[in-house]
Write a protein that binds this DNA or RNA. Sequence first.
DNA 1: TTACCACTGTGGTCTAACCACACTGTAATC
DNA 2: GATTACAGTGTGGTTAGACCACAGTGGTAA
Lengths: 232, 232
Amino acid sequence: MRTHELVLQWIEKQLSDGDLALGGRLPGERTMAEQLKVSRTSVREAVRILEAMGVVRAGVGSGKDAGTVVIAEPGSALGSTLRLHVATRHLPVADIVETRVLLESWAAERAQVGVPELAEAAELLDHMDVAPDIDTFLALDARFHVALAQAAGNTVVSAMMASLRGAIENYAGELTGNLPDWNATSARLRAEHRAILAAVNNNDGGKAAELVAAHIQGFYKEAGVGANPSPK
Amino acid sequence: MRTHELVLQWIEKQLSDGDLALGGRLPGERTMAEQLKVSRTSVREAVRILEAMGVVRAGVGSGKDAGTVVIAEPGSALGSTLRLHVATRHLPVADIVETRVLLESWAAERAQVGVPELAEAAELLDHMDVAPDIDTFLALDARFHVALAQAAGNTVVSAMMASLRGAIENYAGELTGNLPDWNATSARLRAEHRAILAAVNNNDGGKAAELVAAHIQGFYKEAGVGANPSPK
DNA sequence: TTACCACTGTGGTCTAACCACACTGTAATC
DNA sequence: GATTACAGTGTGGTTAGACCACAGTGGTAA
């Protein structure tokens, strides 16, 4: 077993045993190296991996943002991983879109009416109506979809859904510039969002799921990204 | 931007541009360091991250297994990431199980009859009938489920499904020892597998999906792991 | 022909140093 | 006394250079 894997194992055990919790701070790199009888290099390689996994965040200096602290951001980490695999041509974009449709329509169907995430989603829609530019709009759009997914109460599904979107963010982002009429598209998307949210709040999960599926497939299809029809 | 991120960016560009393909070999660490005008340490940190993502595999010595080669193993990489997040208590095991049920029943419903993966799945079932011990059985079981998921033709879904299982492998593995009667459980699981495969081959996707959901939930419930009923 | 062995290039590991950063406490100043 | 300036401390970030184990390669001696 390689040295940095030993360090990883040690840290994972600290987490499993509860000796190290979310928001907690890892010992300094030099301290860990001494304790585990390894070089600082190996410790750093382990920390890098954890950072790539979205398990820790490293900060220089001193104070609240300093040191290596335990976080929980699986979404961005999974997104980076998927993006790299898309780059290797191993994961087709169409499969990503199809999976996103699957997860997100599932979440829409099970969204719990009354949870704070839905209120947040509604607020985001208001902000999108006055978004000054496309990038702002897309950022708010991303947050809306995440909020909707979170309303279903399954952290794994919402994390994966966010990562799928993130993995092909650049793809879709580049293509929005090629749309024939952004204002028209934006208006349509916003109307669809409100319809989805209304269906959810009306306890019509089935309809919400259908609307979400059509919404996502429609967007990617218009943007020219392969979107499987995913026949029922 | 930190130095190793620069290296990562460079490698990702090589992949996106097609200058580096699956099965291809990265330049040596010393060579890359010199080309990019960075230290070998930074190059190594980038390679470590890619390795953790399942994008490359590093091998010492010389010959076919030597050097850093581009691979495509998103499943194990995502699995490790999820496992760590389970350790931080951020991802509940119940959510993992629920998501697995979602993905796997979706795949079962859409499995294409006649694809080689189904034939492989059938073979695996025969081997499971004569598995000498629990560990062998579980390994074959894992491969069966992956083959079934692959039969749906969505690489993202099958990779995620495999990673979900991997993330809680230890959990479930430890608990099998506590089962009251392994032989009875094994017999039941095997019968369920055959029923699932029969439904798929009979073009009855709906039934296959139901059977898969019940199969997975039943296993984790018996093993004592939180399994949400996921009501329709 | 065979067996041996030095050579080469790969990743794996370590040491020791220096840097930028951000806070902390002290000392000089007003 | 309050304010300012600054050295001190501990954090991660980066580098250079060395040595190791490993696995093929190719020459050389038996």
